[in-house]
Amino acid sequence: TYTFKVDNKDQAKKAAKWAKKLGLSFQIEKHGDTFKITVQ
């Protein structure tokens, strides 16, 4: 499981695209202005 934080929606979208490309499941949680992405 890999967790990282991004500062904006664009970065969150890029991370989601990357995870989908690799066939991984992911969750994006919004914490105020940051997004926490968990990829597994």
Rank of each mutant, 00 (worst) to 15 (best):
K20Q: 12
L24S: 02
Q40C: 08
G23W: 02
F4V: 03
Q27Y: 13
T34W: 14
Q27I: 14
W18S: 03
T38F: 05
T38M: 05
L24K: 04
A12G: 03
T34M: 13
I37G: 00
V6G: 02
G23I: 02
S25P: 07
F35H: 02
W18E: 03
D7Y: 13
K5I: 15
K30W: 05
S25E: 10
K5A: 13
V39F: 07
F4T: 02
S25G: 07
K17Q: 13
L22R: 13
S25V: 12
V6K: 01
N8K: 05
F4Q: 01
I37W: 01
Y2E: 02
T3I: 12
Q40T: 13
K9D: 06
T1C: 13
E29F: 06
V6T: 08
L22F: 07
K21T: 08
K5H: 15
I37H: 00
F26G: 01
D10Y: 15
Y2V: 07
T34A: 13
Y2N: 03
K13C: 11
G32E: 08
K20Y: 08
K14W: 10
K14H: 08
K13N: 09
Q40R: 12
D10E: 14
G32C: 04
K5V: 15
I28F: 04
G32N: 07
A16L: 10
K9F: 14
Q11K: 12
D33F: 06
K14A: 13
A12S: 03
K20T: 10
E29H: 08
I28L: 06
V6F: 10
A12V: 11
T3H: 09
W18V: 04
K21M: 10
K13S: 08
T1V: 12
K36H: 14
A15V: 15
L24F: 08
F35G: 00
K17N: 09
A16W: 11
F4N: 01
Q40E: 10
K17M: 12
I28M: 08
I37E: 00
Y2D: 02
E29R: 07
W18H: 04
L24T: 02
G32W: 03
A19P: 01
V6Y: 07
L24V: 04
F26S: 03
K21Y: 06
A15C: 12
Q40D: 07
D10S: 14
A15E: 02
A15S: 04
F26Q: 00
K14F: 07
D10K: 14
L22D: 01
K20H: 09
Q27P: 00
A12F: 04
A12E: 01
I37R: 00
K30E: 07
H31V: 15
Q40W: 15
A16K: 12
Q11E: 10
D33V: 06
D7E: 12
H31R: 07
T38W: 05
A12L: 12
K9G: 07
F26H: 03
T38H: 06
L22V: 06
L24G: 01
V39N: 00
L24A: 02
K36A: 11
G32R: 05
A15K: 04
I37A: 02
K14T: 06
D33K: 10
G32Y: 05
H31F: 12
D7H: 13
F35A: 02
I37P: 00
F26D: 00
T3V: 12
K9M: 14
Q40K: 11
Q11M: 10
V39Y: 05
G32P: 02
A16M: 11
I28P: 00
A15D: 00
I37F: 08
Q11W: 05
N8F: 04
D7W: 10
T1D: 06
D10L: 14
T1L: 09
K21A: 09
K30D: 06
T3N: 05
F4D: 01
T1N: 08
F26Y: 10
K20V: 07
E29A: 07
Q27M: 12
G32K: 06
G32T: 02
G23N: 07
K13M: 12
F4K: 02
A19Y: 10
D10I: 12
L22S: 05
K13G: 05
T3C: 14
L22P: 00
F26T: 04
A19M: 13
T38K: 05
A12P: 01
K13W: 10
S25Q: 11
Q11A: 14
D33L: 08
T34S: 14
T34C: 05
K36T: 15
D33N: 11
K17E: 12
K20S: 09
L24P: 00
K20A: 10
K17A: 13
A19T: 01
A16Q: 09
T1K: 12
K30M: 08
Y2L: 10
D10H: 14
G32A: 05
K30H: 07
K36L: 15
I37Q: 00
E29K: 07
K17W: 10
A12K: 03
K21N: 09
N8I: 03
Q40M: 13
Q11D: 11
V39R: 00
A12I: 06
Y2T: 04
G23V: 02
D33R: 07
W18T: 03
T1P: 09
Q11P: 01
W18F: 05
Q11R: 07
N8V: 02
I28W: 04
K21L: 08
H31M: 14
A12Q: 02
L24H: 04
K5Q: 15
E29D: 06
F4M: 03
Q11C: 14
A19V: 04
A15R: 04
A16R: 12
D33Y: 05
N8E: 03
F4Y: 05
A16H: 06
D7I: 09
Q40S: 14
Y2H: 06
K20L: 09
E29S: 09
D10N: 13
L22A: 09
A16E: 10
K36Y: 15
Y2Q: 04
T38N: 03
D10T: 14
L24M: 08
T3D: 04
K20I: 11
Q27E: 09
L22E: 05
D7V: 10
K20R: 10
A16N: 03
L22H: 14
N8L: 03
T1E: 11
K9H: 09
H31G: 03
I37M: 04
Y2W: 13
D7P: 09
T3W: 13
N8W: 02
Q11S: 08
T1H: 10
V39E: 00
E29P: 00
F26L: 08
T34R: 11
I28R: 02
K9T: 07
K17Y: 09
K9I: 14
Q27G: 04
W18P: 00
Q27W: 13
E29Q: 09
K36V: 15
K14G: 04
I37S: 00
G32S: 04
K20W: 08
G23F: 03
Q27A: 10
I28N: 01
S25R: 10
A19F: 14
Q40Y: 15
Q27N: 09
K30T: 07
W18Y: 05
D7C: 11
H31P: 01
V39W: 04
K9E: 12
G23M: 04
F26N: 01
G32Q: 06
L24C: 14
I37D: 00
V39I: 15
T38V: 07
K17S: 11
K14Q: 09
K17C: 10
A15Q: 02
N8A: 04
F26I: 14
D10C: 11
L24Q: 02
Y2A: 03
Q27D: 07
K30I: 09
Y2I: 10
K13E: 10
V39T: 02
T3Q: 06
T34G: 15
K14D: 05
L24D: 01
A16F: 09
K14E: 07
K13D: 12
K5M: 15
Q40P: 03
K36F: 15
V39H: 01
K5D: 11
T34I: 14
V39A: 02
D10F: 14
W18A: 04
D33T: 10
V6P: 01
T38I: 10
V6D: 01
T34N: 10
A12W: 03
V6A: 05
K5S: 15
A15G: 02
N8T: 14
T3Y: 10
A15T: 06
T38Q: 05
D33G: 09
F26P: 02
F35N: 01
K9V: 13
F26K: 00
K20N: 08
L22K: 13
E29G: 03
F35Y: 14
A19I: 11
F35E: 00
K9N: 06
K13Q: 10
N8Y: 04
A16V: 13
D7L: 09
D7Q: 13
L22W: 09
